[in-house]
Simulated scan of single mutants.
Amino acid sequence: MAEHLIHIVGNSSLQNELLITYLAKETGFQITNSAKIEDVALAESRNDDSKLLLIFDCMGVPRGEFWAQSGLQPVLNSSQVMLALLNVEPGQGLEKEAISRGVRGLFYVNEKPALLSKGIVHIIAGELWYSRKIISQCLLEQGVAYKTPLHHSVKLSTREKEILIEITSGASNQEIAEALFVSQYTVKTHVYNIYKKINVTSRLQAMLWAAKHL
């Protein structure tokens, strides 16, 4: 089984040190930090099968030049690295662009530590961490433009359709399991089968597929 590592990048060293102490205790994951993105050893360069969640501290990075100045492109291009954003200022409109670039989730300025911990666990589990409102807006705006061919031969079971509808609402596997009175293992199995049938590899792609085809 692949090991999950968490690395926080940002200049707020004291804040990040305190955050690391809290998150390591709450999640049990190995967590490190550095001031610069260049200091991060991506999974491909480590020659192992570990998976890295990189949490980028947005504090001090201008919104208008965020993607150019952040140096995150190598991370976005990596198949072994999951990216989340920390200390995002509300109202900047960064959410939709982050989703389109494959960012797994974001945490706002002054986010409660308990919510940070919960979000990290969900992201590590392969889920997105955005508000349902943001996800719904992205579905409405991007659904028409989604280019996956219509699969006339795709036949989803009634249960698979129920789970896919829950996914489009932004529900986590745990929330789906509770809503449908099944185990999380059962949900994970159905999600795997859904992805395979509709030829997608992520929750966002599944949402966009559902917006176009259901």
Rank of each mutant, 00 (worst) to 15 (best):
P74M: 01
V75D: 00
V75C: 06
V75H: 00
L76W: 01
L76F: 03
N77C: 01
S78P: 00
S78H: 01
S78C: 03
S79G: 05
S79F: 03
S79Q: 05
V81W: 03
V81I: 01
V81F: 02
M82I: 00
M82K: 07
M82S: 11
L83Y: 01
A84R: 02
L85E: 05
L86I: 01
N87T: 02
N87L: 11
N87S: 06
V88R: 02
V88Y: 01
E89Y: 06
E89C: 06
P90R: 12
P90C: 06
P90K: 14
G91R: 09
Q92V: 13
Q92M: 12
Q92I: 12
Q92S: 11
Q92H: 10
G93Q: 09
G93H: 09
G93A: 10
L94K: 04
L94W: 06
E95V: 02
A98F: 15
A98Y: 14
A98L: 13
I99D: 04
S100V: 09
S100T: 08
S100E: 15
R101D: 07
R101Q: 10
R101Y: 09
G102N: 15
G102D: 11
V103H: 13
V103L: 11
R104E: 09
R104F: 06
G105C: 14
L106F: 14
F107H: 07
F107S: 11
Y108I: 06
Y108M: 14
Y108K: 12
Y108L: 13
V109C: 13
V109K: 15
N110I: 02
E111H: 04
E111F: 05
K112N: 14
P113A: 07
P113C: 06
A114S: 09
A114T: 05
A114W: 02
L115N: 13
L115S: 15
L116W: 08
L116N: 04
L116T: 03
L116G: 02
L116P: 01
S117Q: 06
S117N: 07
S117M: 07
S117G: 11
K118Y: 13
K118F: 14
K118W: 12
K118R: 14
G119Y: 13
G119C: 12
G119S: 13
G119K: 11
I120P: 08
V121Q: 12
H122P: 02
H122S: 07
I123T: 03
I123S: 06
I123Y: 07
I123D: 09
I123M: 13
I124R: 10
I124F: 10
A125P: 03
G126P: 13
E127D: 09
E127G: 05
E127K: 09
E127C: 13
L128A: 09
